[in-house]
Design a protein around this nucleic acid. Structure first.
Lengths: 231, 231
DNA sequence: ACAATAGTGTCTATGAGACATTATTGC
DNA sequence: GCAATAATGTCTCATAGACACTATTGT
């Protein structure tokens, strides 16, 4: 072990939320070369005595200002092309975070200039490094996991309506879902959501029951996307 | 970038195959400390100019002696607990490989003493480092992916029977499947398998049609496990 | 009353699972 | 013929999707 190739290790975050019927990702504007002025995923170096997941959680708190237990954080994958960073050999471990639309969001955090950007508009402005690829992987992971896990609730506040949960699915998948079939599906899948017992107030139309996320970690049966081509 | 914490980066492989109706993993016996004499996953350091996936493919070829395009190789996850390696700060990127039962397997390769070990018997002999956790993640990933991808074919030779494919499912999942329903399911799922046009010879019973893997990368509808508890 | 949204019920097509039946080989 | 395995067909139940209908609010 005396001799081994020296690497730098970073964590990068794909932080997603649903706001104004759009799937948005948290991006920072780079203030220094390389890729100065370009959008990039938030992230940073892993401390020499720090676990990867701790580093990811630390970065998430630094960038968003919110403490841990809100939303969802999971490892996405690692990227280590020798040329991915012009400064040297940097392997990054990407994490995926799903958060509700925060009332007091990114402002006032350590990030130079962090902002929510609709994923649909990121394609134009190429991100720094290989972050386009990492973002695409994160979005695809999120889309897939909505099918067989209750993670859509991570995009919602603690208490939410079925209609709110439906807009999450519709926004992330980019599809339309039948409100009546969706309601039946969600409320009959064991452990997906639990009724709070109260309703919304002050909206147009009949008040909606409020729910919180249930204990299930997998959905049986899954919520299937309206077809997608099987090849 | 002038100053950053120096890490070592390794790849470790969870190489799975189905042989003699058992799910087996390729393990090596460690010849040097730490964990001398213990079983471990095959792996090694990533070269300073080497991509992660290239390092994984190189290790796989070195350990098994087979060239690339056979089977399946994908990234599994990264493990970076500061205490996971007593020699220093080592982050490992784990890869999952699924291979057919090889005719000329591990013998005569670079590995000191590599061998196929049934996964069911690994629990006793604790693996080196955090390899127990990595192996468990690999097995769970394989089990899950058999549901919604055609990866079961990666455990089969280029041409195989439906019955062979069924034993793969039964072995990996540890369940029994109805041969008739399984046959109908596989042959009616678009792109899963394609008939070769020939049959087996010399076995007992009616000869079976031979198939090769089809073009699908996802199964619609998926092959669902016979229940598993949804909480 | 009317618009708007929430929630329930009904019908139909499709797929899963149980299982009978037929087909083709070796002995 | 008989055992063994392959492959097809039939029946029933559960679920997905389409959509009519009822319920409860604000204006």
């Amino acid at each position: 072990m005396a001799e081994y190739p020296p690497f730098a290790v970073t964590v990068d975050l794909v932080v997603l939320t649903v706001r104004a019927d759009e799937l948005c990702v948290l991006l920072v504007r780079r203030g220094v070369p390389p890729y100065q002025g370009r959008w990039a995923l938030p992230g940073g170096f892993v401390g020499i005595d720090e676990d990867l997941s701790d580093a990811a959680a630390r970065e998430l708190t630094e960038e968003t200002g919110i403490p841990e237990p809100v939303g969802h954080l999971e490892q996405l994958g690692s990227y280590g092309d020798p040329k991915r960073d012009p400064r040297g050999r940097v392997v990054t471990v990407a994490y995926l975070a799903l958060l509700p639309d925060l009332p007091s969001p990114v402002a006032g955090t350590d990030a130079a200039a962090a902002d929510w950007v609709p994923v649909s508009r990121v394609a134009d402005a190429h991100l720094a490094f290989d972050h386009d690829v990492i973002l695409a992987a994160g979005v695809e992971r999120a889309r897939a996991k909505l099918e067989y896990t209750p993670l859509a609730t991570a995009f919602c506040p603690a208490e939410f309506t079925i209609a709110r949960l439906r807009t999450v699915y519709e926004t992330v998948w980019g599809t339309r879902l039948d409100p009546r079939n969706f309601h039946r599906k969600v409320t009959t899948t064991p452990g997906f959501v639990e009724p709070v017992g109260r309703t919304t107030e002050g909206d147009r139309g009949r008040p909606a029951q409020l729910y919180r996320r249930g204990p299930a970690r997998l959905l049986h049966p899954p919520m299937l996307r309206p077809a997608a081509g099987g090849g």
